[in-house]
Design a binder for these strands. Sequence first.
RNA 1: GGGCAGUUAGCCAAGUGGCCAAAGGCGACUGACUGUAAAUCAGUUGGGGACACCCCUUCGGAGGUUCGAAUCCUUCACUGCCCA
Length: 426
Amino acid sequence: MSNNAFEELQWRGLIFDYMEGVPELLAKEKVTVYNGFDPTADSLHVGHTLPLIALARLQRFGHTPIAVAGGGTGMIGDPSGKSSERQLLSREQIEYNVSCIQKQLAHFLDFEVKSNPATLVNNADWLLKLNLVDFLREIGKHFTVNYMLAKDSVKSRLEREEGISFTEFSYMLLQSYDFLHLYDTFGCKLQTGGSDQWGNITAGAELIRRVRGGQAYGMVYHLITKADGTKFGKTESGSVWLDPNKTSPYRFYQFWLNTDDRDVIKYLKYFTFFTREEIEGMEVSLAERPEQREPHRALARAMTQMIHGETALARAEQASQALFGGELENLNAAEIADIFSEVPACEVPRHQLEGEGYPLVDLLVTSGVARSKGEARRNIQEGGIYVNNRRVEDVNRAVNLQDALQGQFVVLRKGRKNYTLVRLLE
RNA sequence: GGGCAGUUAGCCAAGUGGCCAAAGGCGACUGACUGUAAAUCAGUUGGGGACACCCCUUCGGAGGUUCGAAUCCUUCACUGCCCA
């Protein structure tokens, strides 16, 4: 670990831009720093963890973190980084989302430490109380429309035909007000965020300077990019969430394990607490023994443990080994049930497999492996379907009781790594 | 309220009376090669079937013209832009 927070974030490649004076501030003072999180869904996803972990890093250097759930700003919608106007969420939905993500936010920070305990707040607590006329007089007066129009988030939308609503246009005022409020209440002097937040953050610092004559700072992180140009944090089945009910620990583990070689070292720096020496060691391993995928494994292990804990990690690893190792016949019923607990499953009455058995094409559809019989048939013809890890050659194959592992399960697989467990019911 | 433009498959986008289950691109799926990577190459991508052949449904909704409509007409809805 470096001996100063800024250097630490710097060598990890996190910092995209910062206001003048930030390195000195972080070196000399114990700073109260905040980062906001939008309640656009009922769970955070992997992308959110970057600024969140960064907040935890800052706390380890003695700074005091504040995580802000955007229960108030979420009512408006941040235009930053969005190419079109967003649908407003209902108030109930936002409140529910806030309650969900607050639990997740709390997981990363230390609230017990005496010297610099973390704080968790919801900006609905102060924003919803605002009175429009007062707000326009006290806050709005400090911003010129010219200034606001010059912000990237607004400018890019003005260039498009559909424009930007007054609602979203006003967003930066609310976020600026947040900063001011936290400055007044907690002495918060630094705001962090993704690089798309630069405009909102500088607006807040500007407001503090004008209203209080105070000096506040901003620092933004790189948006996470992928070498193949696709969006980080998405898989074929959607976003990778922190909530285990939305993304199972097994899938979560697999998400990290499948990281592109070109990105893996970057992610280790971004997301994990491995030291510089450890990461440099993995860089060597990647160059010399790429097929071992040591860095990928380390990344997947660290992230799964951090988010889901030791037990879930052990299960995810065990499942991964069994699934990609192949030998299913040697497992007992309890092991199968355990390993495949992470994998999509369906239930089928045992009697359907009696005699001739259940046509595989139909089983693929009822189990959700294929969306239609045509697709199922195609998948088999292409050689992409496996029953108990054995490739199926015959489109007309049926699955019968002889295929049942331990008399209770049938394991379907599509392609290299899409497993589904069929459970037989009495 | 007025004028104009638009609404085609997961997305973008061609098609403007039959040869249209609908070009092309992206995405996605499968295979080969591999390291559960990348790149590359090949195939597939509305549904159903007795599956190299047939049937059904789909081009914003409803109705109509026609032997025949994604394509023409009427009407409704929605979206965008401009004017008030």
